[in-house]
Nucleic acid binder design. Sequence first.
DNA 1: TGCGCAAAGTAACGCGCGTTACCTAACTGG
DNA 2: CCAGTTAGGTAACGCGCGTTACTTTGCGCA
Lengths: 356, 356
Amino acid sequence: MAKTTTSNHAGTARQRGVTMNDVAKHAGVSRTAVSFVLSNRENASISEETRTRINEAVQALGYRPNAGARALASQRSDWYGIVTEIVTAPFAVDIIKGAQDQAWLDRKFLLIAPSDQADAVGPNQGLEDAATEKLLEQRVEGLLYAATFHRGVHVPETAKEVPTVLINCFDADGKLPSIVPDERAGGRTAVERLLRAGHRRIGVINLDPVIPAAIGRLEGAREALADAGLELDPELVVPGYATADGGYEAACRILDRYPQEDRPTALFCLNDRMAMGAYDAIKERGLTIPGDIAVIGFDNQELIAAYLRPKLTTVALPFEEMGALGVQTLAALTAGQPIIADQQLVGCPLLERSSV
Amino acid sequence: MAKTTTSNHAGTARQRGVTMNDVAKHAGVSRTAVSFVLSNRENASISEETRTRINEAVQALGYRPNAGARALASQRSDWYGIVTEIVTAPFAVDIIKGAQDQAWLDRKFLLIAPSDQADAVGPNQGLEDAATEKLLEQRVEGLLYAATFHRGVHVPETAKEVPTVLINCFDADGKLPSIVPDERAGGRTAVERLLRAGHRRIGVINLDPVIPAAIGRLEGAREALADAGLELDPELVVPGYATADGGYEAACRILDRYPQEDRPTALFCLNDRMAMGAYDAIKERGLTIPGDIAVIGFDNQELIAAYLRPKLTTVALPFEEMGALGVQTLAALTAGQPIIADQQLVGCPLLERSSV
DNA sequence: TGCGCAAAGTAACGCGCGTTACCTAACTGG
DNA sequence: CCAGTTAGGTAACGCGCGTTACTTTGCGCA
């Protein structure tokens, strides 16, 4: 009897790599045959019998394909790369989750590379470039760039050698496709919710007014008010640092400025952290939420929104959807399909909880 | 003149893959020579002149090594795999950050694969197994398993084909090395901090008493009290759901149970979310933090601890360090070094803010 | 002059696999 | 009985690179 196992090392089997050749010998066929059945080739003529014999050999030997070798031969790595500062500033991890889930569905692997807190402009992109370079060395079929907050970015030149999609950010100079939240519609949603609850005098706690999030959300708020025949009173829009303390101070200012009858009955906080501070300001004054003052946030940061008391009604940033859509767009691009749109907007759904 | 660029496609250069051969021809040397200078081989005899000529060719052609081919030839992938549910439940992303940073330093690449919310026991490990399998197909040199909260887990059998380290969890059956937080020392730290501030009557808001976190932290608290000649009054230990609401209710119970003079002057909340609820209970009763009641948390969930008002003093879970240490341990294992310890404890540092 | 030896470099094999030719035997139809 | 077809396979090349063994050239020195 011929030895059926062909482990090249004398000792323990499977010490190092069972190859397709081993499987072939074990099954008494050629390596080509094995390759055919493993890749489920359509017009390959392999009898049902040998097919099962091969499969049994695979089982028996515990064969596991070598993805690297396969990629080399087939010229398809089945990898996408995503470079992101999210690892270092985990505000928007859900982008990665969405992207990874979608990639898994498409039988792609997502290679995650860290980009250091990229100040979008400065020449401090060294690490980001290195990450991109590393990803390209792995022969990724496409690249994703994801930011923790909606803004313009510059992507390294080298990235353009391969299809590229931006998530939660947009290309400040070139013409790369991007996926961003529909801030304007989100702002409208928030204010419409307050209007629906009967509020007419609405205070707004604003972010840094130059960032896309602030611009869009405020614009949406204005539209919603206009639809109701109202105007946004500039006096009621107070800026604050994007923190709980910032929200607290801004809320104090707005609450203390008016006599009770003129006081806004609702606060639209442009992010949840500020809403957290606003809660304190409100409670401190003996007012109740939402009885005396309704509060609506933005971002849906679970850790905050779901744990504030009362739980915060807020408009969610669709991170997961953006991640998934990014991968889908990338798939379309790598397949040679034309770009769907230069910039795809993703809706920001309202999350009803108990603060309105 | 011979054409110097050897792009195999007529049109645009660098369309698909500049190979080492192209570089070699461009520089007028053999591919072997190129390989030698690129890998900085020690005892290779390449004249300084040809060396620079080769480097120039690399630049000129924009050559980028093919990591896959290199891995195939050298039998070293330079990859570690990490399978984790953190992507889906991003509580402990910092583990990934720590691991990735360390991997980057070691010139390794971290392949992140999602594991679905693994109920540690149940047979619902389908996806986790699939993830492991995928990683092994990529020929990772080692595996990491990371959990969102400290607990026992079962890792798939196949994982044992390659060095494996557990992070923030431990092997429930086998003997895999693991990295976990030193909960006991952390609990001690927290209570010692309260004692140092003069508190003698300390309430504890407990987690589910069977999980490692609760057991360890409580044990540490007991030790700290014992050192001060005190005992942990079982009446002062109230359990709660691990949420803000749970913390609120538990705090209410503990605060309302005693007349003012018997009331605890400090609360040790076993996690920050519960501390968040406790804040509300305290403020609601017109008490101040830390004036009337000091609060100390555990976990250091940035979004909560850093944004509560007053900011929460808490004991940090050393996620980043655990991630880094995991990679270091893995490096040691793959290098054939013996395991340092079956289970490595990582200290939980105190983060002083303003609630004590 | 001739020998030895270091310097400088190259040919060629193999890593594990996809893929394209090609080959053989059995079966069909006329 | 023979050409043509099809089922069932196989040999062999190439993917891009690491690596070993081997070759060639120059040069010091007896």
